Amino acid sequence: MKFKELEDFLGTHFIYTYDNGWEYEWYAKNDHTVDYRIHGGMVAGRWVKNQEANIVKLTDGVFKVTWTEPTGTDVALDFMPDEYRMHGTIFFPKWVQEHPDITVCFQNEHIPLMEESREKYETYPKYLVPEFAKITYIGKAGQDNEDVISEAPYPGMTDDIRAGKYFDAPYHRLHK
């Protein structure tokens, strides 16, 4: 599978591990929306659907995705899928660094809490996490596939996905 145009990237499901050991799962749902689950790191257990994002092709096979979460966290990801590499920069507000447990949930059901916490606690200085990552899984899920990120992360989930025990051939969740 080769990536060149934005259409090659959209609808792709990735698992990657940052050099600091944090493991993330991320899905380019369509040209303006991403879903993701966090499996390792200070906010492991967090998952999000329908995050509005800016998704662009920088050059052939290289894609940049940026967004701001309701928490106030800013994210910038650069994907080089043909090289199984990416670079992510996460700008965590001070409150997320000090109270990560507040964000470890299905964010979509807790937007008011994220917004309240963003106003209640300190934002600065931001905790900057710039890291390269190795992409350990690439799946062609197709665009707007609600089965890709459809439940909370569990221990061993990414191993199940990589082993082919999570999705069937048309990329739907097995054993719901």
Results as ranks from 00 to 15, higher is better:
Asp160Trp: 02
His32Arg: 15
Lys29Glu: 11
Thr66Tyr: 05
Phe3Gly: 02
Glu5Gln: 12
Phe79Met: 07
Gly11Ile: 01
His99Pro: 06
Met157Pro: 02
Thr103Lys: 04
His172Gln: 11
Lys94Gly: 02
Gln51Leu: 10
Ile102Leu: 10
Pro155Cys: 04
Phe14Tyr: 13
Gly72Lys: 04
Gly139His: 02
Thr66Met: 10
Ile38Asp: 00
Phe92Lys: 02
Lys64Trp: 07
Asp82Pro: 00
Glu23Pro: 03
Asp31Arg: 09
His32Lys: 11
Phe91Leu: 15
Thr17Val: 15
Phe9Tyr: 13
Tyr154Glu: 08
Gly40His: 06
Met114Asp: 08
Met157Asn: 07
Asp19Leu: 10
Met114Pro: 04
Thr136Glu: 06
Asp168Gln: 08
Pro130Ser: 15
Arg37Gly: 03
Leu10Arg: 03
Phe91Ala: 11
Leu6Asn: 08
Gly21Ala: 07
Phe63Trp: 05
Arg46Gly: 02
Thr66Gln: 14
Ala169Ile: 11
Pro153Gly: 05
Leu174Lys: 15
Phe3Leu: 01
Pro130Gln: 08
His13Asp: 09
Thr33Asn: 09
Lys49Ile: 07
Thr103Tyr: 02
Arg85Gly: 01
Asp101Pro: 01
Val62Ile: 15
His172Ala: 02
Asp82Thr: 06
Tyr137Met: 05
Asn54Gly: 13
Phe14Asp: 00
Met86Tyr: 09
Glu52Thr: 14
Lys120Phe: 06
Lys120Pro: 02
Ala76Trp: 07
Tyr154His: 09
Asp60Gly: 07
Val43Arg: 01
His87Arg: 14
Asp74Met: 14
Cys105Pro: 01
Gly21Cys: 06
